[in-house]
Every structure is written in C-alpha cells, then in structure tokens.
Design a protein around this nucleic acid. Structure first.
Lengths: 337, 337
DNA sequence: CTTGGCACTCGAAATGCGCGAGTGCTACCG
DNA sequence: CGGTAGCACTCGCGCATTTCGAGTGCCAAG
C-alpha cells in the first residue's frame, strides 16, 4: 500500500514544504525531484497518502501539506542523516574555548544551538538531584547567618543563606564543613542527603539547632523547585516563524513559563546522546500547538539534564537533530573533562 | 503659547492614545474628558501642539498621536504620580518571602516587574566591579585544578576553574585563601584586585606560578565581559504590543543580544532609587526604534546595578515608573539586609 | 477667543472580478 | 493493472473599484 514511490513522494513533500512554507503541488514535485513519472501519477499517490492521514490540503485546489503523522513517518524512516557542515563543526568547536565555568559554557552552548538551528534553543542545567557533590563550603557571614555553597560534579554552584538560631563559631563551622563534605562524598546529592539526620548528635547541645538548620537547608536544595534552571536563546527565531503558529504569543508565554517546557524535556529522551523528537500534537501541552521539539540528554555518565530546540512543526528535522546531537556530545565531554 | 488648556489637551491625548492605541480626534476628546469647550477649539489647540512638534497625525484625516517630544513633556511635567494599588503592593510584598539567595530573588523580582507592568522586564545583576568582596573560597579539585569561588556583598557568587602549573597542597591552599580574603576585605573588587601583584612573594618558589595563576584568575573576573549578567522576563508582552513596533523582531533580537541593553541601562540612571526614562529615539540604538525604557538603579549604597522595563513608546509611563521605583527599593532593601 | 457650519481629504472596509494553481475524474495505453 | 494525458471544475489570491465616515482646516459669526 505504501510502496517505494509513495514514500519518495512523502519525503519530497516534506522537504519542499519545509523549504518553501507553501503547500506543494504535483507539478512542482516532479519538476524539482527526479520522480520520472507524470504529475497525474503523483496525484494518485497523493490521494493515497492523504487517505492514510500523512498529508492534507489546507483547502480544495491547494497543494498538500504534511500532517504531524507525516512528519513522524519522515523523521522515523525517511530522513537521511545530515552530516554537519564544516562551518557548523567550527562553530561548535569554539565552544571548547573560553572560560570553563558552567554558566559561561551553558551560555555559549545555548547561543550556538540557537544560531545553528535557527530555532529557539533551551538547555536545562544539570540537575542537582542526580549529580554528585564535589565540594561543600560553609562560610560564617555574621553570628546569625551563614552561607552554604554547594559545588557539584558538573560544575554547578548553588548557594543558600541560612539564618542561624545560635552562632556556630569558627571551629564548629570547620568541623561541620568537614562532616558535611565527608557525608556527601558518595553518590548523588539526593541519596547523600538522606543520611544527614543524625549529624547533630556529634555536636554540643548549644549549637545543635544551628547544625540542624544547615542540614535542613542542604536537604531542601534538591527538593525545591528552584533547583531546576532553564536557559533560553534564539527567541527571536520564533518571530521569524510566527506565521507557522496559530498563536505564537501563547507559544512565547508557554516557553517563558518554563514549567511546561521542563516537564516536556524531562519526559523525553533519557539516554545521554540519544535524540528524541516530539512533533506537533505529541507535545500535549497547552499553548504549544504546532510546536515541535528536538531534544537530547547530556551530562557526564547517564543523562543528568536535557537540551533541545523548539520550533514550528515545519522544521528542518535532520539538521536540527544533527546539531542537537553534536552539542549534547560536546557538552557531555566538556563536563566530564 | 502653551497655556493651561493646551497642556490639558496634550495630557488627554497621551492618556487616550496609550489606552486605546488609536489616533485620537477632537470630538472623542471633549466627550471623554471634561474640557468644557467645543471640538473646534480643541482643533485649534491641536494645530498649535502639532506646530510645536508635540503631536502628529499619521495621515491627513486621522486623529493625533503624541510624538516622542510629546511623551517627554508628558512624563516630565504632566504625569501625576500614580500610587500602587493594593494588589500591586501585595504582589511585590511576596518578593520578601522565599529563599534569600540572589538568583531566586532576582528571578522573582524580574517576573514581578514583568507581570505588574505588562512589559518586558530586565534586571542587571549587581556588578562585580563595584561591589565589595564578602568572601573568597579556594578549593582543590585535583592536583592540577582548583576552584575559585567569589562571594560579594550583594550575595552574588562567581566561580572559576583554574588550571594550575603545579599542585598547591592543602596548607598552601589554606594560606593563599586567607591572604586573598585579607587582601580583598577592603573596598570594591576592582580596587582590591589591584594590590595583588606581589602576593606570590610570600610563597615558596615551587608554587609561585600556581599562586600567580590564581591571582590572575581573580583579576580577570571584574574585567571579563562575562561578569555582567542580565535576566529578562515578559518577552511575551512584547508580542502583545507588536503592532506598535515597525519591526518587533529586530527589537527581540536587540534585547536578546543584551550588549545594547546593558549599555543603555548603565548609561541611564545612576542614583539608587531614582527612575529615569528614555523615550523612543532617545534610545539611539539600532533595532530599538519605537522603544521606551524606564529604569532605575538599585543595590545597597550607591547603585551597583540597574533594572527596568522596556516597551513601546505608547506605554503607561506613570504606572511603569511607580512599579520600577517600588521594586528597585524593595530589592535594595533586601540586599542590604 | 470661541463656536457652529461646511467642504474636503483620505484611509479602511466592502465588493466584485479574473487569473491560475491545483485537483479529481475518466478514458486510454503499454 | 499501473501509468498517462486530457479536461472540467473549484476556489483562494490579488487587484481595481467603490463606498463610507471619521477627522480636519477654514471661515464667518457670536
């Protein structure tokens, strides 16, 4: 039923529509592709494809447009891997230069992603849940306050100011710091933090409430919603494609909200380096009608975080997939180094 | 020449145009405002105002629209201070709740700013140049690498990973950390950092290159462009007002670029708490045609950073000014606490 | 100085029309 | 039976034309 040529026709329709943005007709197809059959034949094939729900026509006497299902089939079976151009390779390579602190790496990566795909790019910071603790620092700011600084494996730094019931004093602070570092030196933060409940026992009664305050703050870190951070770039690319969205303002809102986007990202690909694609209605989120998402996990070891690009369903999937995969790998490598 | 009533007319035109977005005619004016004169009189006044360059008509047989100069006069002399509504007060008040670390405070503040003004909100992080150092932390990650963590007065935390020519060892690290804290305990980071050039003399020859590497990294921090951080919110509000811009995509691009925006912000208000307004062409930046900016400085003591909102020239100036001022003050107070 | 009256202008919306891209169908061919 | 050529038909798009009305400027009178 869906033989060789019909698939070729579908591929051609997707490619042309992505390129031009206009419904593609039978004549144009045979002209631009080497299909070596007549337009009439193509029309018959198109009728079949339409019946299968892979393409549709916006109105009678217009050309055909791929449906979400059509894109899905294209991405899964028809798309040929598109190797990165040397210019793209070079652009990504420059990521390796520059400061090694996480903030600036992520910033450069997200900009590169947006620029190369010409879509909206999004990167989630390595989750505090799953990464391991590299170091914990405890600084007395005043008798009533101290600062807790947490540095993870992936280079992420998180800080909290803690109000203390009673002053700790320099020695106690040093001891507590050492114990915290010792206790969290093992597996992920989330697991490590579970063992801290009895820490106060090793301290003098006077400072125990303060110790507990610090422990509570530390336990709170992987729990709070604030711990998830998302950075965006290339929002202006959305405006360029605004004609493709029913309401691109609602898309902007949904993106800014971050919550929805975060959920989508984490729901998608799990494995580091694997690229997953959500097309159109598959992103069952309010405000994201007509939006596709190409995402991958990244991070040292198993995926600790995700990154991706977001654009109209009418999007260059092979190209986006290639860039997303490449950047995810580079990022993983840098963070592991 | 510009008597009482003419100013009242200008104010009415600005208010109506801001409210409706449509050129306002003489008849509508007398209907909606208590001007107790006839439309014909208003027309004469309008002719004068137009001659003075304060209003203009998009085309013959259309109503009048304020020019940039008109808005300027309105803001400087005509606008009445608009007190915050209790709902607005409450919304800002909730800023005081929640975690006290800088990132989340700024995040909440920028969202509040965007929501209350229904404009694009932008907040600049307290500059590393002018703030004082609260604490410096130095952590050995491996023999060849250490992590430098800088905590400023305003609660900002900055980190760098430093490649070391030779291992420092725990004792030397401790000594160096102490010396760095001692040396930077004075004035602003930028000034403090100037005195570090001879620090290596106090160390054994073997570790001197490593000490110098740390000092260099520290000196680099206030210098690098990366140190300036800008956070945005409410970009979707721009889309709502997209009809007001000649090309709102270029506005989006300019905003994303951040460099332009940063320059504008720092060029504007200097004093903490004072609100400054740039209207239309006064923002002499490419891509920002038809954009106005309402900004204020904030921070403990003299303004260390800026925040503001950005929108079409057709914008509720009194309201925006009130909110910007309020949030700048709250933020200053929180950071000082 | 203000006001009513009036002719005039000009953009926005409505209307009508022709063009052409594209389709589906049918008859025909290898 | 799949492919092809021909052909009538549909329907959105672009364009010219018209109409409508909001708003102005000017003038003469109060």
């Amino acid at each position: 039923m869906l033989d060789e040529r019909r698939m070729a026709v579908l591929r051609a329709i997707v490619e042309d529509y992505v390129a031009t943005g206009e419904p593609v007709g039978s004549r144009g197809l045979v002209e631009r592709h080497q299909l070596s059959v007549s337009p009439a034949t193509i029309r018959n094939d198109m009728a079949v494809l339409e019946e299968s729900g892979l393409i549709a026509q916006p109105h009678t006497s217009a050309g055909r447009v791929p449906t979400d299902a059509g894109y899905r089939l294209f991405v899964d079976q028809l798309a040929t891997v598109k190797p990165l151009s040397s210019a793209e390779r070079r652009a990504i390579q420059t990521l390796l230069d520059g400061p090694l602190n996480l903030d600036s790496i992520v910033d450069r990566a997200v900009r590169a992603l947006a620029q190369l795909t010409r879509q909206v790019a999004v990167i989630q910071y390595p989750s505090l849940r799953t990464t391991r603790v590299r170091h914990i620092e405890l600084v007395e700011l005043s008798p009533a306050r101290c600062l807790l600084v947490l540095i993870t494996d992936a280079g992420r730094v998180e800080q909290r100011i803690i109000e203390l019931p009673a002053a700790l004093g320099p020695e106690t602070t040093a001891v507590l710091r050492a114990k915290l570092n010792e206790a969290t030196a093992g597996p992920s933060l989330e697991e490590a933090v579970a063992d801290l409940d009895n820490l106060w026992q090793g301290f003098a009664p006077a400072v125990r409430p303060s110790v507990q305050a610090v422990v509570d703050a530390l336990k709170e870190i992987p729990r709070s919603g604030y711990q998830e951070r998302l950075v965006l770039a290339g929002t202006s690319n959305l405006a360029r494609a605004s004609a493709d969205f029913p309401s691109f303002m609602s898309v902007l809102e949904a993106i800014e909200e971050q919550v929805v986007l975060l959920k989508l990202l984490t729901d998608m690909s799990a494995d580091s380096g694997k690229v997953a694609v959500r097309i159109g209605h598959e992103t069952t989120q309010a405000g994201l009608e007509g939006v596709s998402l190409v995402a991958a996990g990244y991070g040292p070891g198993p995926a600790q975080a995700h990154l991706g690009v977001l654009g109209p369903t009418r999007m260059d999937y092979p190209g986006s997939i290639a860039v997303v995969r490449a950047i995810a790998r580079y990022l993983s490598r840098i963070l592991a180094g």
